[in-house]
Design a protein around this nucleic acid. Structure first.
Lengths: 210, 210
DNA sequence: ATACATACTGATAATATATACACATACGGT
DNA sequence: ACCGTATGTGTATATATTATCAGTATGTAT
């Protein structure tokens, strides 16, 4: 997609503003008015150019039929479908496969230190002492760069698990936060496991989960 | 604001859907078409009724000039300033006083069983075994109707505290979820305390809080 | 030198849309 | 019995809006 010209960016800004303020996109006449065009056709031509460049989509024969394409839409949160909530994950399938997505929830990303990419429902009490209970949702930031003592989401023989990470050389321990559970030891030279991400937050529906 | 009729709710739903799918509100004709009205005026009348009830705002002389009022806007997230985050509460002041509001955070309300009215930062580890750690945010639904064993936010001699509720006759215990803390006993005939609400959820920024 | 995108003015036709008016039925409250 | 609200049908019209045609001027790449 080619770059937008400054004037075209102004038009996009104007459309965003109209949607934010009035809930509806502007008409050609309103665009012309705002930018002091004497001709509505100037607005029309700009819209056509923006459509060619893929910034907007024009619905023909429709009043105010201007649709901002994703990249030009405002406020990530505002338009984002929301973080996918991943439930049980079937063996051999990617964690974010559509089948696993139970719902989507919108949450201010700045509630967390690092932006989460998805939510995962936790089963079992193995992380109880870390304040993660059965049924809780953990907010997960997808990354493979993790440090010791971080709580991570890992994949181990097709099971998804949430544990505290500890590595020494080629040996990795997945540490539960509950005395009733045993650590899982992994030898990186023999076994393979995948790190899906790091837990950046927890969301609990207190009344439902207990 | 009076309740909406089922038919009126359908109209609101339709408007939400149109905005979600097309980015623009529907015309009267589109509403009539979708609901199989033979007359566009049926749609007009519904819109007028919805405007009277405060669900929408109609921009006169404007095509697609339908604006959903906050409470009826989708996601509520989109427009809501967000749940107020309450930090330390000063003695003698209402919990939601402006001075206590550290920030506002937008969260899908349907993440929780009951809609939260505000977030409160928890200090201390007294609810550790209930998975509520120091620095966590609890989502609070303001109500005075609470049942035994629910985790509540109470006010006791100008201190705001989160504890599990237990009542027998005129005696109330505020139970910590941590063996290192003692229950607080209250005699309703002598002491007075205020119930600020019930905890409906927990939100934790894992990386910041530890 | 010529083609092509940008950035407009100005006018007009076609149609999309809002809105008013007349009328009908059903239902709940007074 | 009467009124107001909800839920429609049907017709008509003013106007809001899209869309097209005919130009002008400027810069940039070929």
């Amino acid at each position: 997609m080619r770059e937008l010209t400054p004037r075209q960016r102004e038009i996009v800004l104007l459309i965003q503003e109209a949607i934010r303020n009035n809930g509806i996109p502007p008409t050609r006449a309103e665009i012309a008015g705002a930018l002091k065009f004497r001709s509505v056709n100037a607005a029309e031509q700009h819209l056509r150019a923006l459509e060619r460049k893929g910034a907007i989509e024009l619905l023909r024969g429709t009043s105010r039929g201007i649709r901002l394409k994703d990249a030009f839409r405002e406020g990530s949160l505002r338009t984002m479908p929301g973080l996918p909530l991943v439930g049980r994950v079937a063996a051999g399938e990617p964690i974010l496969a559509e089948e696993h997505i139970e719902a989507r929830h919108r949450i201010d990303l700045d509630l967390f230190e690092a932006p989460p990419h998805f939510l995962l429902r936790v089963h079992g009490m193995s992380m109880k002492d870390a304040g993660i209970l059965d049924g809780d949702l953990v907010a997960v930031h997808r990354t493979s760069e993790i440090r010791n003592r971080q709580i991570i989401v890992a994949r181990l023989e097709d099971e998804v698990t949430v544990k505290r990470y500890r590595q020494e050389g080629h040996r990795v321990w997945l540490m539960p936060a509950n005395a009733e559970f045993d650590p899982i030891e992994i030898d990186l030279r023999e076994q393979q496991f995948t790190i899906e991400g790091v837990v950046v937050g927890v969301v609990r529906d207190s009344m439902r989960s207990r």
